[in-house]
Design a protein around this nucleic acid. Structure first.
Lengths: 143, 143
DNA sequence: ATGTATGCAAAACATTTGCACCTGG
DNA sequence: CCAGGTGCAAATGTTTTGCATACAT
């Protein structure tokens, strides 16, 4: 049976949680705000409150199912945690998000933390720039 | 004459701006929230509104005088832009902030951006962890 | 003088919470 | 049946804004 991941998180398999997980799995760019999720639920005709979206996303985050990112936008964006760690490149013009993983950088971070007497729990590396996508021009309008 | 930096930013040299700049220059850890600045102004007996603090900090940011960071804390922190670029290590227990600069990482970022067809404008690298400072234990309580 | 700045209060956002009702196991 | 989940509205915390007044230049 599906939705095992929800059950594994110790959560009841309810309609809102199923639908929200579905959206995260299907969403093209995979990086969505709570509002984004909420709007897509409405488009699908689902009657799910924004508060529930936040609650579910927070629970999913606690369960390690999704990751929350705080880019420079003033709100959080979420993405399904598909296992492999990666960092992000965000286009400041169109909002497009690319992912990357760089072993060299990861190793250096570890070393730097040691040098400064920190025990690293997490890190966030985000590059901001302009992408070369031909469609890149207009603002994405998250709100 | 002092406060030339304010004049150079195209801003009138007013008392609030002078005082706020002073605080940024004097503050021990150099990473303060708008509230922090506001509270220190009050301590000094200055009658400056929180709204003004936000306005001035935003103007200073636009002028390149200060940098704004969005760590995972839910509010922005500001620091004087003393020229040299650097990244941050934030202690998730006590809020302490350390700075570092790593040439290797900087170079890799450039290369990665190229590979993904991005022209980098900026980046943000923040490590989160526990520091080994003996005083580190209690929350810092920004509010 | 005169265009900017400021203070205050209200507004705007993103996110969280209290509470009565609903629902999955 | 019953603990846990949800919707709604109200509360929160941060940052922004409208407007009448005060101030640099």
């Amino acid at each position: 049976m599906d939705n095992q991941e929800i059950r594994d998180a110790g959560l009841k398999v309810t309609l809102p949680r199923i639908k929200i997980l579905e959206i995260l799995e299907q969403n093209p760019d995979l990086h969505v705000s709570a509002e984004d999720v909420y709007k897509r639920l409405l488009e699908k005709g689902e009657e799910i409150g924004l508060a529930t979206v936040y609650r579910v996303l927070t629970q999913f985050e606690a369960a390690g199912l999704v990751q929350r990112h705080n880019f420079e936008s003033g709100y959080s964006v979420f993405e399904l945690d598909r296992g492999g760690h990666h960092d992000h490149i965000v286009c400041v013009r169109c909002g497009r998000v690319a992912e990357f993983y760089d072993e060299t950088i990861e190793k250096r971070q570890q070393k730097i933390a040691e040098e400064h007497g920190f025990e690293i729990k997490d890190h966030s590396l985000t590059l901001y720039g302009h992408c070369t996508d031909p469609k890149c021009k207009e603002k994405k309008g998250k709100k």
